[in-house]
Amino acid sequence: MGGARGHGVGREETLRRFHAATSRHPWHLHTHSQMLQWLCAKWFGSEEELFAFARRAVADAPPGSPLGGLVAEAHLEKWLSLDRGDDDVYMTRPDVRAELRAAADRSVRHPAYRRRPG
């Protein structure tokens, strides 16, 4: 998946690769993280696609899945795109903090979560 960004692979091929990987391992964190990066506006996507993907992945994953970190990754990408000062305001917004807590509750703070290597 990471090669899709560096080699400028198009959307159709990137999605094919993502679906091929997730058909073998539906909740593979690295695969999802690479797709999330591809969807960043700085690469080939948009902020809307980035957040939609992260939220959908977390909602579809089983409770306790490490995919909750995708929501944090998406917010960090947004934070990085903001000017100094606006970035701090963004991360302290009640809606952002609530979404981060909800993702953690569904993921690493969920009773079904199990630490795994990596």
Rank of each mutant, 00 (worst) to 15 (best):
P26E: 03
S23L: 02
K42G: 07
V108R: 10
D87W: 11
R24L: 14
R97L: 11
L70C: 02
G10L: 04
M35S: 08
Y90W: 12
A4C: 14
G45Y: 09
P63T: 04
Q37N: 10
G64P: 15
W43T: 00
E13D: 14
W79T: 02
G69Q: 01
R101N: 01
S107H: 05
P62C: 07
E13L: 09
V89I: 12
L39T: 01
R55L: 05
Y113S: 05
A54R: 03
L36Y: 00
A20M: 03
L80A: 14
P111Q: 10
W38S: 02
D60T: 05
R24D: 06
D105K: 13
M1F: 13
G3F: 05
L100H: 07
E47M: 04
V9Q: 02
S46D: 10
S33A: 15
F51W: 02
S107V: 10
F51T: 02
P94K: 10
R109S: 11
R17S: 03
G3D: 09
D86W: 07
L76C: 13
E47A: 10
W79P: 00
G45P: 13
A74T: 03
L15Q: 14
G3A: 06
A20S: 06
G45W: 06
G2H: 09
V58P: 03
S23Q: 09
V108H: 08
R116D: 12
S23T: 07
G2L: 12
H30Q: 06
A54D: 04
Y90S: 02
M91D: 01
R24Y: 08
G68D: 03
A20D: 13
M35W: 05
G118Y: 04
E48M: 06
G118H: 10
D83S: 15
F51R: 02
Q34V: 02
G118F: 02
R116E: 15
G2I: 12
P117N: 11
A21R: 12
P62E: 15
L80K: 14
A72F: 01
M91V: 15
M35H: 08
A102C: 01
P63M: 06
C40V: 00
A102R: 13
G45K: 06
A61P: 10
W27P: 00
H32D: 05
D95H: 07
A59Y: 00
F18E: 03
A103P: 00
R109G: 05
R17A: 13
T22K: 02
L50V: 03
R116W: 09
D95C: 01
E73V: 02
R97K: 08
Y90L: 10
E48K: 14
R101K: 08
H28I: 01
L29N: 08
F18Y: 15
W79H: 15
A74K: 00
L80S: 13
L50E: 12
G3T: 01
R24V: 10
P62S: 13
V108W: 12
A54W: 09
E73K: 05
A52S: 14
F51Q: 05
L80Q: 14
L76M: 10
E77A: 14
F51I: 00
V108T: 13
Y90P: 07
E77K: 08
K42S: 11
R24E: 09
D83E: 15
R16N: 09
Q34H: 14
L100S: 01
E99P: 06
H75N: 08
R109F: 13
P111G: 12
A59M: 05
F53Q: 07
A72K: 04
L82R: 11
T22M: 04
V71C: 06
M1N: 08
W38Q: 06
E13T: 11
G10V: 05
K42V: 12
R114W: 09
